[in-house]
């Protein structure tokens, strides 16, 4: 984060010294894109915040730990695909799952679909990529996650 602030400031100063007018155009363009995205993003974040409250971590742990084998892997993949859990919650959660005896493969599938597949953020993805691309990217990522999980599970 600090690095990003530093890098952005540096870029802005550099850009301003070379051409102030061009910098302003870039500024306006960037901010325009930001305010285009902000309303839909706020709604999604409100929904996710509420979901995180109504589905507490314990429930997720129990749910993921309840089944093993192929069904367990599929459940983990689906939960990971639907949920939008930030990494600082997801990794400790994964750690708890491992401690409860859930297999590495299930945890790997869960983590991979969590970071690659975004069901809740689909409205944003469609704005940028269109329905077709968003659908295929998520589907292919979901299948990839199943393969990754199986492989990690086999090699751990």
């Amino acid at each position: 984060m600090l690095l990003l602030i530093f890098f952005t400031l540096f870029s802005i100063i550099l850009s301003l010294t070379v051409d102030a007018r061009k910098t302003l155009v870039g500024f306006k363009r960037g901010m325009g894109m930001f305010f285009n995205l902000l309303p839909v993003l706020l709604v999604i974040l409100i929904i996710v915040s509420a979901l995180l409250y109504f589905i507490p971590q314990n429930t997720i742990v129990q749910f993921l730990g309840a089944r093993s084998g192929i069904l367990g892997v599929l459940i983990a993949a689906l939960v990971g695909a639907i949920a939008l859990i930030p990494p600082f919650i997801a990794f400790p959660l994964a750690n708890i799952l491992l401690a409860k005896g859930v297999g590495y493969g299930v945890v790997a599938v869960f983590i991979t679909t969590l970071i690659m597949v975004g069901f809740v953020t689909l409205p944003i993805e469609i704005r940028y990529f269109g329905k077709k691309a968003a659908f295929w990217r998520n589907l292919l990522s979901f299948l990839a996650a199943l393969i990754i999980g199986t492989l990690v599970g086999a090699f751990m």
Partner: peptide
């Protein structure tokens, strides 16, 4: 729920504007 939201919104309001500024500068 607001506490959860707070965590996200801080990220959105600090991180994203900088990203978009860089994208804008990159564009020009």
């Amino acid at each position: 729920i607001f506490r959860n939201f707070n965590v996200f919104i801080i990220e959105v309001l600090t991180f994203l504007p900088l990203m978009f500024l860089l994208v804008g500068l990159f564009d020009v």
